[in-house]
Amino acid sequence: MQLSDEELGHLERLARLKLDGESREKLRGQLERIIEFVKQLQAVDTGRVTPGADTGTHEAFYREDGTGACLERSEVLGQAPETKSGMFSVPPVIETDDT
């Protein structure tokens, strides 16, 4: 399985990674080996296996619709590298081309 430059570029954009030179080639090789491995899994004949949704055998259990305690806001915001007005501040998310 050969990963083209175009496919690698697409993955880089999705993962917000900028790779070049040696590390890019190293990643290309690793990804190709992963895909080869998945191909081995796909080769297994599962035709006679019942599709399983759940690996466990536990009984389903539910919660009644009551409310409990939430985290302190300061604790929550403490998880964020940047905050503003009580919210997490992140890079802009929607990029569009005008039609």
Binding site: S85, G86, M87, F88, S89, V90, P92, V93
Partner: peptide
């Protein structure tokens, strides 16, 4: 919920 804040950032309320 994402709110578009000033200065090109987005703000998140979970």
């Amino acid at each position: 919920k994402l709110i578009h804040g000033e200065g090109g950032v987005s703000l998140v309320d979970f």
